[in-house]
Design a protein around this nucleic acid. Structure first.
Lengths: 109, 109
DNA sequence: ACTTTAATTCGTATGTTTGCGACATACAAA
DNA sequence: TTTGTATGTCGCAAACATACGAATTAAAGT
């Protein structure tokens, strides 16, 4: 991450980091696709998105680096799939944020 | 938003947009602060964050433009508060994403 | 009227993300 | 071994984001 970000506590950093991964519609679309399809599809992910192969590949790598998805080579193809454990752990970070922020309607404006 | 983003369906865009707002720890911190404090605090938000006043103000404006927070002038101060309705609607977007993606553990890798 | 104080905008520097064409790799089939 | 196909990496350009000091606005107190 960048510059001053480091000075925030690590919960905040981790959540922001996770949010950043979801901050591009292509990456959300990829996650949805991988969750929907019964089989882990490969690079025809690219055909489903309005972006070039190179660009989609870049987004795939980003998700892969974050360990949200995994790819395994099968001949000429690469089959990607969601890493459900990681994805759940991201869900729980968001859940915690929403839980602690929604409830005490502290403000009267 | 930018360039090719427009070509994705609007659910994806909206979620990505919301995620982008949460993709900087300062903005998450601001939301948490406003939810925690009983009174809507003003610019001493800046004192709680490791950033300059100008930078914090910029993040506040970003959240305000997205209507997640609201500010009202009170003399020399500005009191900010969470727009709970908007915040809940963002929560529900994330909830829907997680709901439809977690459950069918379709992939066997 | 003038000074102080709080908040915001402006201008600018620096860093990051997005997007793609072109090149590289790697397997498969001819 | 050459050819074709699927993927992934590189290098660049344009667009965006982050950060802040300085200038600006606006209400309050003197």
């Amino acid at each position: 991450m960048q510059a001053k970000t480091i000075e925030f506590n690590s919960d905040l950093q981790e959540l922001a980091q996770a949010a950043k991964l979801l901050s591009h519609p292509a990456r959300v679309a990829i996650i949805k696709l991988l969750a929907e399809k019964k089989t882990c599809i490969s690079g025809d992910i690219a055909n489903e998105l309005p972006l070039s192969r190179a660009t989609v590949c870049q987004h795939l790598q980003e998700l892969k680096n974050a360990d949200i998805i995994r790819g395994e080579i099968s001949g000429l193809n690469v089959n990607y799939c969601l890493n459900v454990e990681k994805w759940k752990s991201i869900k729980s970070k968001f859940d915690i944020l929403f839980d602690i922020t929604i409830q005490n309607i502290s403000c009267n404006c």
